[in-house]
């Protein structure tokens, strides 16, 4: 395997006393889709801005494309495509002008950009909006334009910070389709998200972050295997009774998590467990058997849910 595109060792970022990123280690290989999963405030965006060679780290070692971003910021940024959490598009310009101007920032020629813009408008499904002012676009369209903009220089690494936050489900699915396409084509992706379904769909490998630290690392399937059971049984007895019932249920399964509105029971066989609960004379108001997700991994690692 070739050497990693990104290597971080003991990477730390402090804002005065506050430690936003706390001695994290990770590698990203070429062609890999790498995710940073964690709740808001976990330090994901700060990590992204450091990898993006704009924000300076406080300490630790970091190499991107073989270079130190502290010394070679512009040289590294020349090969990154950055899709920030907020679409910082040029609101006064049209869709195609945004792509053109951004391409110029990479020193790309007019001729190259002419064909490239057509390609990107098609990719982002914005062909009919090419002359529209950015202000008039929907949230999903702006997001797709920001992603297309990030691809204008054919970057070595595409970095996406919370790519679907704030979008409605339909817009999110369109975006996932586009991103999955990039992944299939072997574009190296670094993605942050607090949506576990997004992480499961798009990431080959991910780290779970909380309070600036990495809690676990692996493929989505491996993390679920390591930190959760195959299935989860969710039951509700009503908010007043959940607590008391949880006491009775302890010992019936591998692990129990009591949430304000429901109880999660971790088991290899959810249906069998539900049978057992009924046989014991307990009758939950609702029950649901599902497979374990990264949400469960996060809950196990931190005792909290991803989305508060």
């Amino acid at each position: 395997m070739s050497s990693p595109l990104i290597t971080a060792r003991g990477l730390t970022k402090k804002f005065d006393e506050f430690v936003a990123v706390d001695e994290i280690d990770f590698d990203v290989a070429r062609g890999e889709s790498f995710g940073l999963l964690g709740p808001n405030g976990a330090g994901k965006s700060t990590t992204m801005r450091i990898i993006g060679a704009t924000s300076q780290r406080t300490s630790g070692d970091l190499t991107i494309l073989g270079m130190d971003p502290e010394k070679f910021g512009p040289q590294i940024r020349a090969h990154l495509g950055v899709v920030p959490q907020q679409d910082n598009l040029d609101m006064q310009l049209s869709v195609s002008e945004n792509l053109y101007i951004y391409g110029r920032y990479f020193g790309l020629s007019r001729k190259f950009l002419k064909t490239k813009i057509e390609e990107l408008l098609e990719f982002a499904q914005l062909e009919e909006k090419r002359n529209a002012k950015v202000e008039s676009l929907s949230g999903g369209m702006k997001r797709r334009l920001t992603i297309a903009r990030g691809l204008v220089s054919e970057p070595e690494i595409l970095m996406l910070d919370e790519p679907t936050t704030g979008l409605d489900p339909q817009a999110r699915h369109i975006l996932w389709d586009r991103l999955f396409r990039l992944k299939e084509q072997g574009v190296t992706l670094v993605i942050t998200t607090h949506f576990m379904d997004e992480a499961e769909q798009l990431c080959d490998r991910l780290v779970v972050m909380d309070k600036g630290k990495i809690m676990a690392e692996g493929s989505p399937a491996q993390l679920i295997k390591d930190y959760s059971t195959k299935e989860v049984l969710e039951i509700r007895f009503g908010s007043e009774r959940n607590s008391a019932m949880a006491e009775q249920l302890r010992g019936m399964c591998d692990r129990i998590e009591e949430l304000p509105d429901r109880i999660l029971l971790y088991s290899e066989d959810g249906e069998a467990l539900l049978e057992k609960i009924y046989s014991a004379g307990m009758h939950p108001k609702t029950s649901l058997v599902r497979r374990s997700s990264l949400e469960d991994v996060f809950l196990r690692l931190t005792g909290r849910t991803l989305v508060d």
Binding site: A78, S153, E154, P155, E156
Partner: peptide, 27 residues
């Protein structure tokens, strides 16, 4: 369309260093 990864060949560092502020002015 196929999204390629070719920035190492197409991005012109020298040009960006000498003309970067002109690109910003152009925007």
């Amino acid at each position: 369309s196929n999204i390629r990864q070719g920035s190492l060949e197409i991005v012109d560092q020298e040009k960006i260093i000498s003309r970067g502020s002109l690109y910003v002015a152009q925007a």
